[in-house]
Amino acid sequence: MDKTLVQELKEEIIEVLNLEEMKPEDIDASAPLFGEGLGLDSIDALELIVLMEKNYGIKLKNASEGKEIFRSIEIMADYISKNRTK
């Protein structure tokens, strides 16, 4: 597990999704991002897709691909470290 990437993702997510009241340490990297956990919705999922594209050069073709990748920050970090182009 790339701890720096996890920390980096937490910070980016807080910024991109305007989670003003949150600090990186408040987010459990293994907790679900959608539904329970952070309680994100479909618009947030699209924002995360843009985040991956802009910051890591990963382009998803279909919004539904995000469902698997965004299960938790840990899973997301894992996917990014395997597929990043920048």
Binding site: V16, I43, L46, E47, V50, E53, K54
Partner: peptide
């Protein structure tokens, strides 16, 4: 390219 949907919505 790579546009954030929130502002559009």
């Amino acid at each position: 390219q790579s546009l954030s949907p929130t502002n559009f919505i």
